[in-house]
Amino acid sequence: METFLQVLVSGLMLGALFAIVSVGLTLIFGIVKVVNFAHGEFLMLGMYLVYLFTTKLGIHPLLTSVIVAPLLFVAGVATQRFIIQPLMSARDDHIQIFATVGLSTALINLALLLFGADIANTPASGLRTPITIGPVRVLLGQLVILAVSIMLVIGLQAFLKRTQTGRAIRAVAQNRAAAQLMGINVNRIYMLTFGIGAACVGLAASMVAPLYPTSPNIGTYFVLTAFVVVVLGGLGSLTGAFAGAMIIGLIDSFAGFYIGSDVREVVVFGMFLLILILKPSGLFSNRLSLSHVSP
């Protein structure tokens, strides 16, 4: 029973990690409708920034988000403006995928060039402190991730529902052409969305970096899982993505413990395929999201 609880809690904590990493992708994938293969590299970039700010300037990792998130916002806006937007009118929408693959390759190698292949170690600054609750143990940092990811989802949800800009973003997501006719500057909305998505990753980086060793390839460990989470949650649904992340975290944890670590990827991807095929609109699709299957 104790073990079961620990597996459960580990799964939830892993889910929170996936959630915080995937929230930004949900926005980008759900609204701009671009498969951003460089998403993981944004995280990697953010983690290196956190590493630099903590080790060189001695700032607490959580505080670095104040600098790192805006920096990534700029990176996101630039990516949308200079790479994605010019391709929006291309005949083949596949082409954007390859642009992001190129970006991802460039960023991984840039990190290799600047930081080398060795791991960069962000000081834990107390975030690795284990906390014992009854029979289970979690890290302080993991609880922070869980709390922040919940707040982030609630905050973004409110932003999308309550503010003028948020409503414009939703309008663009629902029907780009109609939104354009209503006088919404679609390109601006896309840039903003991409920026916010990237900023979320920056925020995530400030919490992930103290817990996980940073290396040029760290992004690739996350990116497929993040896509799985976003698709499971239903395109563009923030709460859906959060729930999807929790489910993947739990599946991963339980499959790892009860089946074996060598095949847990098969279980996760198998579940993903099953849900994609049986319920392609995602487990928690809201009415906002567009269907992504042929009628």
Binding site: Y221, D252, G256, F257, S261
Partner: peptide, 20 residues
């Protein structure tokens, strides 16, 4: 005796298996 992918972000379930 268990393998795992090197590109992983979590080994807690493996740790629990060993502990168990």
């Amino acid at each position: 005796s268990s393998g795992y992918p090197a590109a992983t972000v979590d080994m807690s379930s493996l740790v629990l298996q060993l502990k168990q």
